[in-house]
Nucleic acid binder design. Structure first.
Lengths: 132, 132
DNA sequence: CAGCATCCAAAAGGATACTG
DNA sequence: CAGTATCCTTTTGGATGCTG
């Protein structure tokens, strides 16, 4: 998942460590900003949800990718998985304290997107007219 | 780039429109959180940079992906491309007003990652020991 | 320098079928 | 219900070579 570039200087210091492809922060960034990671984390911001609820809320995700992304995020300590041993089994996912802190900055980011998507669409159309 | 799922209800209303795979906000989200988009936008937060400077700063990116991602972000109106007609040509990229606003929430997000990467790594190792 | 075009390898991701 | 396993398609992305 992390690109290993051999030509990096040994102790690169920049605006963010994530610029360094060797840094573990880059892996964390990749997990969170993966195609479905951000949507899953944001969905759980409203409280615990079960597998099928997540599947219903997030449009277009396959069961495979939901389960796969959840596993990664659970391993990262951002999401907790709870199993109620019943039949049928009830499995719910919720943000850990760590994940909770993350989603606060995440919400600001998604809010920005929601508010400014019209401007971006306008820019796209304007750009497409230029290059016709 | 956007997944077209036909079973979405016509007027889905959720926490964020990005949950709807039909919504243009999802495309904007994908562009920004694409593998290199976030790093490029953050790098430009410090001021205008030329193509080769970006290539040097962002570890592991190929010229192809840099150029491709830049084109998308320019089309989205987040980045401006300026050409000085000289030989050799000097092309510089900088954030537009729109892109500037975005990077503010982006910085909060990357800051969180930088501060909490150690906790995530600890969680990963703890999780790996559990499932050994 | 700042790229685009082409080709190819690798990874991501979807559909389907199946399990406890 | 909550997944896993398999297969297969699509997408991503790197390497290389070429251009104004």
């Amino acid at each position: 998942m992390v690109v290993r570039s051999q030509v990096q200087p040994p102790a690169w210091q920049g605006i963010s460590d994530a610029f360094n492809s060797e840094c573990p922060a880059r892996e964390v960034l990749d997990h969170i900003t993966s195609r479905w990671g951000m949507l899953i984390l944001t969905a759980l911001g409203g409280g615990p949800l079960r597998f099928s609820e997540l599947h219903g809320i997030i449009g277009g995700i396959s069961e495979k990718m939901l389960s796969q992304t959840l596993r990664t995020l659970v391993r990262d300590g951002l999401i907790a998985r709870t199993v109620e041993p019943s039949t049928p089994p009830r499995v719910s996912y919720e943000l850990t304290a760590l994940g909770q802190g993350l989603t606060e900055s995440l919400h600001l980011f998604l809010d920005w997107i929601r508010r400014h998507t019209p401007e971006v669409m306008a820019a796209q159309h304007s750009h497409d007219r230029q290059n016709r």
